[in-house]
Design a protein around this nucleic acid. Structure first.
Lengths: 165, 165, 165, 165
DNA sequence: TTTT
DNA sequence: TTTT
């Protein structure tokens, strides 16, 4: 039985345009790099600034919306959970990664340099957006290239069954 | 100027007793390993369970309280922020680590196998618990060994000035 | 279009057993009174304690689980949103109420005086637990009286269509 | 001893300019009205929109910053706790109010119609901003009228000792 | 490595 | 009205 709370709340700006790929089952997986900067005063009274870069991942419908509306510089609210992964790199060395699996996002004031659209992205991950075999993704991301017809890099990372929520 | 929100809320159980060390300036640094388990149903209707192990770090007064009251199995509420670090291992290879820097904690119902005491730990990281030169740490952790008189492993990790909040 | 975040996170203890009722459509609506206590030191160094009593409401499947597993004294984690209502009392005077509409809950260590059961309640409000015409509620709450066959007090408060999420 | 978590996270827009007053001890108390709007689809597939208006209160240094930088329309992130109060109105009737006591805020992208300034407000309520007898408030709010020399409406609500954190 |  |  599930036990525990694993919740992350971020407000930050994208360091780059989002990267959207598709699983073999047609599910969108969008990744962004999100900066949050904090300050503190050290003992000498100097201001110290530190930026964390969060790797945030959006799945399914939320991945489509994030890919469509977010742009480099966009300010966004993200809610999700932390996921730690361990894998073996191509060099045979064990590596670790940490991702924030988003289940809610909301665009904030600034539009970044994407501009154009006008409409505002927002979505709360519901319960029933598991990939229903070939979503109508043609309509879903007017400004993204068509998803690759067959396999792609994410195929190694995520089977459709791997949706982490 | 600071910009962004980086907030983590965890409720989980400790996998081991806490590990408390002291910086050269006498500041307590306590680390715990905290499990949060979530479940989801996969496409075949099978229940999938996944546990994340969070490395949580408590500094200063909060580190003393965490070290004193938490035990393997304890259930605890933790609030803090995510911190990503990159360092070079002794093997010369670049490594990455992710820590949750706690700024609030509260013990919950279950006591784990610590038992005994009776009193309940709880604390909110305030603004003025920077190491004031040699805190009265003798009184602070009745059940922990005296902090090492001189250097320790954390000396490499944290100078007093590194308190991350 | 939706705009904004309205999120509440509570950890507290129930002041009384939960109160479960049913809408005419058969949806469970469970209310609890949840205490959170905070302390601060006033200027004279005296400890001041203050308790807030939150009215938390659970709908649908979550309402059934809350009604079944929570008891007076139970410690519980609740996530939800704030809802302010204004209504006219039977005395013709305008009144205001504030409720926390829960969309996630998890029982914590302490069991309160409910005891017995053994199993632990937990649930995340999903997207598809709107009342599907007559849920199998007979099985759902073994320890609660059968829901009233017809109207009840909540009928005035909530139509099935009023589920606030 | 304190027990429980009472945490609120809001992202919304101000419905009006902030209202700043001062206690007799010289502490700033700023109130804003913050809107968060959510949507849901009802059974007929129609989009239902609902706006909650939160009364948010900022004390001390945070109150000065909120009063200076926020304006009608500003988008802001607020973190705090819920506080329920019961008082007797001038008509002799018992009334209830709910406030969000802020302990952290951060201005977001949009500037509202305040414009001008340029600098961005942000602050985390620290531990030591209790009113130190007459803060240098002349410098603190360039664009607000001078605080009343003597008593004001808040005097009834808040003594200096009432700072709720 | 925890917990249920 | 809870809890410690």
């Amino acid at each position: 039985m599930a036990r525990g709370i694993n919740k992350v709340i971020l407000v930050g700006n994208l360091g780059n345009d989002p990267d959207t790929k598709y699983t073999q089952g047609g599910m969108a997986v969008t990744r962004i790099s999100l900066a949050t900067t904090s300050v503190r005063k050290d003992r000498d009274g100097n201001t110290q600034e530190r930026t964390e870069w969060h790797r945030v991942v959006f799945f399914g419908k939320l991945g489509e919306i994030a890919g469509e509306y977010l742009r480099k510089g966009s300010q966004v609210y993200v809610e999700g959970s932390i996921r730690y992964d361990k894998y073996t790199g191509q060099d045979g060395v064990e590596k670790y990664s940490t991702d924030i699996i988003a289940d809610e996002m909301q665009m904030l004031g600034g539009r970044g340099d994407g501009g154009g659209g006008g409409s505002r992205g927002e979505y709360r991950g519901g319960g029933n957006d598991r990939p229903q075999r070939a979503p109508a993704r043609q309509e879903a991301q007017p400004r993204r290239e068509a998803p690759p017809a067959k396999s792609n890099d994410f195929a190694d990372d995520f089977a459709d069954d791997d949706i982490p929520f």
